[in-house]
Design a protein around this nucleic acid. Sequence first.
RNA 1: GAUCUCGUAGCUCAGCUGGUAGAGCAAUACACUUUUAAUGUAUGGGCCCUGGGUUCGAGUCCCAGCGGGAUCACCA
Length: 572
Amino acid sequence: MNAHLSPEEIVRREALTKLRSHGIDPFPAAEFITTHTSQDCLRHYEEGKEVTLAGRIMNQRVMGKAIFADLQDAIGKIQLYLNVDEICPGEDKSLYNDVVKHWVHYGDFIGITGKLFTTKMGEISIKVQQFQLLAKSIKPLPVVKKDADGNVFDAFTDPEARYRMRYVDLVVNPQVKHTFILRTRIINAMRDFFNNHGYLEVDTPVLQNIPGGAAARPFITHHNSLDIPMYLRIANELYLKRLIVGGFEGVYEFSRNFRNEGMDRTHNPEFTVMEIYVAFKDYNWMMNFTENMLNHVCQKALGTSDVQHGHNVLNFKPPFKRVTMTQSIIDYTGFDITGKSEKEIHDFCLSIGLEVNENMGKGKLIDTIFGEKCEKNYIQPTFITDYPVEMSPLCKRHRENPELTERFELMINGKEIANAYSELNDPIDQLGRFEEQMRLMERGDDEAMFIDHDFIRSLEYGMPPTSGMGIGVDRLVMLLTNNETIQEVLLFPQMRPEKHQPGPDLNALRDLGVSEEWVEHLPKAGFHSVEELQQAKPTAIHQQLNGYRKKNKLEIPAIQLEDVLAWISQIN
RNA sequence: GAUCUCGUAGCUCAGCUGGUAGAGCAAUACACUUUUAAUGUAUGGGCCCUGGGUUCGAGUCCCAGCGGGAUCACCA
């Protein structure tokens, strides 16, 4: 029955039996009370101090009657010194000779009590006096080794295996664990910053009737009792604005959004956006707020305003540079879009070799120019402001130029990190913009937005002037943790489901009367299941099995055709 | 969705113009009471992703599929 297990797994399972027969439960229930962590021991070292720790045993160096090993807990690692006479002061040395030396494996959880000391080589270690197995690991972890210079050998690097088995990744790759600790620190720092300003964290619906607030393909599901389609949210913006209508001064939400679109190293079907809306503010205020918030996050989470990302050092000390969209396009193409018609801009795009088509409105054309020619140049944090009105259906018109909107996007490392508006609060203008979106949709723009009439109604009751800002949390975390792929900052990134090839069902084969000496060979010879036997001709099975026997020089009796016929008759 | 590329032992990887499946680490056994990529000796361990095809012969060549990665398209 162990045919599908690797030899190491078999050894570990046999150890379970041996431990139990010696009265040791490999999965004990009782709480194990620790007094210290690995870091406590290293930071507050006192020779001879008694400590109790728990963790995984990671790297054993057996030297006869003594063993050095590393204990890895939630925080780090510390070296253990396991000496036969310390662990087994009496006559009975079996705890050391059997349990510790042979039945405890790399990756097992253990609890120890011992005294701190420093080895000849100068490493702080624990001289173990009491040893207890807390949980056995019956699948071997990848073994990653590191030399004195910090060079890593045999690292567990296969992205597929790492993302599918993040639990393994976290155990053997400390830098991965650190990324996720930083992720939480970044989010906590943002939350603190907003709370300290008195803004309220809220929850709004994930399951929505109208997937509004952004332009994207939604995931569709169905509510049985109401018998209506429902959508996983693509954004939470319209709900937060309703709350501003309701009278909150400032609201924010860390929103898990879902978009049914392509997946790549910057896109996951579910992702996190932080959105905040503050009443009586405009986008100028929001720029100051955003740069101060980000600097606060860097200081709190990383302890610096200078963040290493790839070859660049990103400086988050306010103020950030501010450039209008129009000026940015002049800077990088020499073309001034001010007052230009859709046709003129279209022709300009063609003249500089951009791929555009007749379906693209003015906003989309300008967006294309910016995306192709400008965006990548903004490495240091830069606010790009005053977008054309066609690109921003939820944004208030610019106070000085009705063709523009009071919008900014924050560019860092050549990519968009945040997006903010002076929010459109004129219900009549808003409805008109939604209707314009519908026209774009009919013209072939599949990114145009749905109309949310309840949202319009809320604006009709009156929304104060408000500024809102959204920030891509996953991308911010990528930026601040020096990662290039979103999968590295999501604990469980979306993957295609694993296809399980069902393992051979040996018991079903036994039930047919297949002899014990043959049963394990049937799958290897190509017959994994009863069904596969059923589908093959008995004569072919007979020949194939005996061919396999000959090829592998099996010292077991040849199969007779009658045997095969007997199995088949059992099936029917 | 398109193109390129990869899939070999628990992990990291070799395997050339087709000819009996390899290394290091891990495992097992023995030795070793301050090692740290511990060391030394010995041993075991493979549906070479799956299914077809070519061939006397396929891990290797061809086709299809499954899964991953990269680039592109769409999007944040």
